[in-house]
Design a binder for these strands. Structure first.
Lengths: 247, 247
DNA sequence: CGGCTAGTTGATGGGTATCAATAATTGTGG
DNA sequence: CCACAATTATTGATACCCATCAACTAGCCG
């Protein structure tokens, strides 16, 4: 195991957090509010309201429900998933504050279901008020286009992760994704607090909680990170992690 | 093996071809031209031109190229893919006549690469002429939004296929997808002509050509279809195929 | 502090990637 | 139009990864 890159965690950390490994979008790029000028933001706020979900694992909407709203996360984490046959499910994405969701099929029904991973506050914009606004406001529509573009690229990145790599490398990709969202850089490494359970990670990566555990175990054995607690990881060799995820 | 559903291929065929298995978009839904009124279509044609690619495996653009055009397929099949390390690649999607492509990253570069699977004729719309058109034409922009929505849902479907199923079931999903695009219903079953090689199928499903072969072999053994030639399959038990892909 | 859920670790069988060899198909030039 | 070469597809054998089942441990919340 070569250790020529164990030396400088801070710059590697910056490399990951600032610019992303490949084409990972910077955090905040997809925030609808951030990209709007004053009056547009005000108009948007006028038709929206904020719901509070006090707990994890609360349903926001189900696949097949009639789509009435577009949602935007103010705080907390949301998971988008599809249920397959009873108990089997695939987590399509984890969403963070600023992200928008509510993908609608041609039939006007939600394609996926959405639920909270943690407690959350979520903006809700009724479609019947949003739609005329979009038609009158090409700039707002354009922002939505950009946002969906981001989602599409994110989906393609996951296709690559799922199609190409074995579980160990998938896990590395996932952790980098998480670090880009939620890591705090510290003098002795990068601290990552995972908001979701092993179960969620497994369903996101198309594997099982057991295999996720074993992957983390192996990373610890190989000196990439340490498990402070099940949900808190401290990375000591980020370049090693990057090397694992390198596609 | 129950054979209660071997009886009525025609209606099963219709079920697949017309409405799709789950939320598979109907063929043609994503055609930009089809959704536009006369003058819009004319304006679009005015700024576009048509390129002819006489052979398979010709590069249209590479990932990292500066993005200058949006493309739309007039005839032929195109594959969108990402190269990982030298020889390894992931096929993200196969595109058909009417489909649009040219996904652009925030940096103005193409995110993926595009190449022909068969000979093809392809519309090319320069972005510097298309962009002002879009800003002035909310309806056109809206159609683009709908189109990207389709792509996103397609990507999510593939995530589910890749994350959940074993290769045999993935292959079934893939074949249904192909049937929806390219099948011709005949009295004694449904004939499917595959435009792409085993290699492409493998890279699309995250597996190997050998495993694809074995999957086809098994389907033949289980009476789902027969291989007329490597590229031509005749399905005799579509409901069996559907059962395999049932998510 | 006790019950409970979430997480970890261990053993085993099945699926599939890999390597290798053969067969079929396509393309090319005589 | 045929024959040969080159490519593509198929089939076989083997090793390895990982899902599954099971047992145990560690956090967590009342």
């Amino acid at each position: 195991m070569d250790s020529k890159s164990d030396a400088a965690p801070p710059e590697i950390a910056r490399q990951i957090v600032v610019s992303g490994a490949s084409d990972v979008p910077r955090v905040g790029d997809t925030r609808l509010h951030d990209m709007l000028s004053g009056p547009e933001r005000k108009a948007l706020n006028a038709i929206g309201s904020v719901d509070t979900y006090p707990n994890a694992d609360m349903t926001i909407f189900r696949e097949g429900d009639r789509a009435r709203n577009l949602y935007a996360i103010a705080s907390g984490i949301v998971r988008i998933c599809r249920h397959l046959d009873g108990l089997d499910r695939q987590v399509l994405s984890f969403l963070w504050p600023g992200d928008i969701f509510g993908l609608i099929g041609d039939d006007g029904l939600y394609v996926n279901c959405a639920s909270t991973v943690s407690a959350a506050r979520i903006h809700r914009f009724p479609l019947n008020r949003l739609e005329p606004m979009l038609l009158r406001n090409p700039r707002l529509q354009c922002h939505l286009l950009i946002k969906i573009n981001h989602d599409l690229r994110a989906a393609q990145r996951q296709i690559i992760t799922l199609g190409h790599a074995d579980t160990y490398h998938r896990l590395a990709s996932f952790l980098i994704e998480m670090i880009q969202h939620a890591a705090s850089s510290e003098p002795d490494g990068v601290r990552l607090r995972l908001p979701m359970a092993r179960n969620d990670i497994a369903d996101y990566l198309g594997t099982t909680p057991e295999t996720v555990s074993r992957g983390l175990q192996r990373m610890e054995r190989e000196g990439i990170m340490r498990r402070i607690s099940p949900r808190v990881l401290k990375f000591e060799d980020l370049s090693g992690l990057l090397r694992l995820a390198r596609r």
